[in-house]
């Protein structure tokens, strides 16, 4: 035991707690039970250790020791690769796939959460050494709150208005509102689709959103989340029964066509609204200087 033992133990503990708090298993059912969780808690523990021991190294004037944080960065990029690979592997087995952009979004958040853990452990240990355990606890809690805030981005309901529209056929063409979805030839398939299908129109609230919801990855994420939550009326080898999202080229609205097993309009609206907006899909044309000059 020396003067650094308790601060380091405290930092590691608060860092690991931060990782556990950020590790939620929800309707997306990812990470899966136990084994997936153990991997991430263990990696969180390693991250917390790195953050905690960096402080004594700095205080001992051992500045080169801080370079091992670069090792940490490499390590957590590896976490991102691991998540991406696993999810891409199993994506082919999903009835409605997640899509590359959604997988990338999940992988990014796994990496960034480890950095938040390093930050929490670093702050915890630093405050403990400079002041005392009480200040360290307060600092740690503030870090936990920051982590929680950074963890949740915006959702679809913040950027669009969602409206239920029953799908209909015009000849062999399937439409949601006036948005063409696909061509279904067989009358019996058409009956099935009218019986089980539901349509929603997502109307963008502003110009930035038009590009975001047009993003193919974002659309696939909506379809995947809805299928996970409400079930999906399809099987392998029935490509005609596939949920699809198409876009109205005139005004950027998108028509969502789904085949859920639970046909509850309000629930479906809620679920579409709760789909996360993917970081990779966000576009901000209104922040562009050229655009704003033109508008003026």
């Amino acid at each position: 035991m020396n003067e650094y033992t308790m601060p380091i133990v405290f930092g590691v503990a608060i860092g690991t707690i931060a990782r556990i708090l950020m590790l939620r298993t929800d309707y997306r059912q990812y990470p899966t039970y136990l084994h997936g969780k153990i991997i991430h808690v263990a990696l969180g523990f390693i991250a917390a250790s790195l953050g905690a021991v960096a402080v004594p190294a700095l205080m001992e004037m051992n500045f080169t020791a801080v370079t091992f944080l670069t090792v940490a960065a490499t390590q957590f990029r590896e976490v991102r690769n691991m998540e991406r690979n696993t999810l891409t592997e199993i994506d082919g087995d999903e009835l409605v796939s997640r899509g590359k952009a959604y997988i990338e979004g999940i992988a990014i958040s796994f990496e960034s959460r480890n950095y938040l853990v390093i930050l929490t452990a670093f702050v915890g240990t630093l405050f403990y050494l400079i002041w005392d355990i009480y200040v360290a606890v307060i600092g740690g809690i503030i870090c936990l709150i920051i982590s929680k805030v950074l963890q949740s981005g915006s959702t679809i309901k913040d950027i669009v208005d969602i409206e239920y529209v029953a799908p209909h056929f015009d000849g062999a063409g399937l439409y949601v509102d006036n948005i063409y979805i696909m061509n279904i030839g067989l009358p019996e398939r058409q009956e099935e689709i009218l019986k089980y299908g539901m349509g929603f129109v997502l109307k963008p609230k502003n110009i930035n959103v038009v590009n975001t919801i047009a993003h193919l990855g974002q659309r696939q994420a909506i379809l995947h989340d809805v299928s996970v939550s409400l079930g999906v009326f399809r099987d392998s080898g029935t490509p005609a029964l596939v949920p699809l999202i198409k876009r109205d080229l005139d005004d950027g609205r998108i028509g969502v066509f789904i085949l859920p097993q639970i046909r509850d309009k309000e629930k479906a609206k809620e679920i579409i609204g709760a789909v996360p907006v993917l970081e990779t899909a966000i576009r901000m044309p209104s922040r562009s200087d050229t655009h704003n000059e033109e508008v003026k």
Binding site: A172, M182, I184, G185, L186, R189, G237, P239, A240
Partner: peptide, 25 residues
């Protein structure tokens, strides 16, 4: 034609599209 299309759709894992009442692919 409908029966053929339904069977072929199932066998080939494809989608039966109607080009007109006379031609399905």
């Amino acid at each position: 034609l409908q029966k053929y299309a339904a069977n072929l759709e199932a066998i080939l894992d494809g989608i039966a599209h109607a080009l007109s009442d006379e031609v399905f692919i």
